[in-house]
């Protein structure tokens, strides 16, 4: 077990990479989910997406907290961080196909299945601040997968919906694979036990879960080995142009108001 004060320089870099991947994924996908509020096909799904977004924002905050303990301010880890320094996978940032509910559902299914696997690989993390919070996150995630798979079953039960799920799967699958792209410090992350499974193992487990399920509802899943790797994978700081637009819009208020210290506007000392 390693606590904050005991990190070597190399370990600290690895922990930061791991935390930024986790936090950025959650923050950015939450930003996207909020776009469906009031546009989802049922009131219950409006609420569900709003709630899932709230959960993911909460989890992003939980993963940014240990970065704050390592010395990053909120402005540094979020509002003033250049877009090319975010480390989320591209599946989190892509704009939705306009009006395509299947896009939101397939994305949630692919992402949340990957999230469950990687959280389980953090339960026995050697880094105390990760270990101490992952249980809380896991407990709040199962509903996300339930929501996505209920809708997938429903959409795939008739031809028009199934065609939408098929299209969304083909479009999103290569970007979902970027969830498992290693960063610079991947070897150290596994070696130090910060995550107890390698990304390769997580990718294999993920494929063994999502491929049979999607096939069982009549969807053809692209052959993972022949999928063309997107030009931008997110994990190395390269992103799609959708990210530039999203980054600009979520930081706009911060910049317009000239926040130096956003939380001080609430009248606190």
């Amino acid at each position: 077990m390693i606590d904050r004060e005991e990190l070597s320089e190399r370990e600290r870099e690895a922990v930061e990479e791991l935390l930024f991947r986790l936090a950025d994924d959650e923050f950015v996908i939450a930003e996207r989910y909020t776009e469906w509020q009031i546009y989802a096909p049922t009131i219950e799904s409006d609420l569900a997406l709003a709630n899932i977004a709230q959960d993911e924002f909460g989890h992003a905050r939980l993963w940014y907290d240990p970065l704050a303990d390592l010395g990053y301010s909120e402005a540094e880890y979020l509002w003033e961080r250049p877009p090319g320094e975010f480390r989320h996978a591209t599946i989190c940032e892509l704009a939705f196909e306009e009006g395509d509910w299947a896009d939101a559902i397939v994305r949630s299914y692919l992402y949340d299945t990957a999230e469950r696997l990687r959280l389980e690989a953090l339960v026995d993390s050697s880094y105390v601040p990760i270990r101490d919070r992952v249980g809380k996150v896991i407990a709040e995630e199962s509903y996300h997968r339930e929501h996505a798979s209920n809708w997938l079953d429903r959409l795939a039960s008739e031809p028009a919906g199934r065609a939408r799920v098929q299209n969304a799967t083909e479009r999103l699958f290569p970007h979902a694979l970027t969830l498992f792209e290693p960063g610079e410090h991947e070897a150290e992350i596994v070696e130090s036990g910060f995550r107890t499974d390698s990304l390769d193992d997580l990718r294999t487990e993920w494929l063994e879960t999502v491929v049979p399920y999607l096939e069982s509802i009549g969807i053809d899943v692209p052959e993972p080995e022949s999928v063309e790797r997107p030009d931008a994978t997110g994990r190395d700081g390269t992103h799609t142009s959708d990210w530039d637009d999203l980054h600009e819009s979520f930081t706009a208020t911060y910049h317009e108001l000239g926040f130096a210290e956003p939380t001080r506007l609430r009248g606190e000392p």
Binding site: D55, H59, R61, K136, V137, E140, R266, E268
Partner: peptide, 13 residues
């Protein structure tokens, strides 16, 4: 009770 609690700062302050 909840990670996404919007009253986190209010309550802890």
């Amino acid at each position: 009770t909840y990670t996404g609690c919007p009253a986190r700062k209010m309550l802890t302050d």
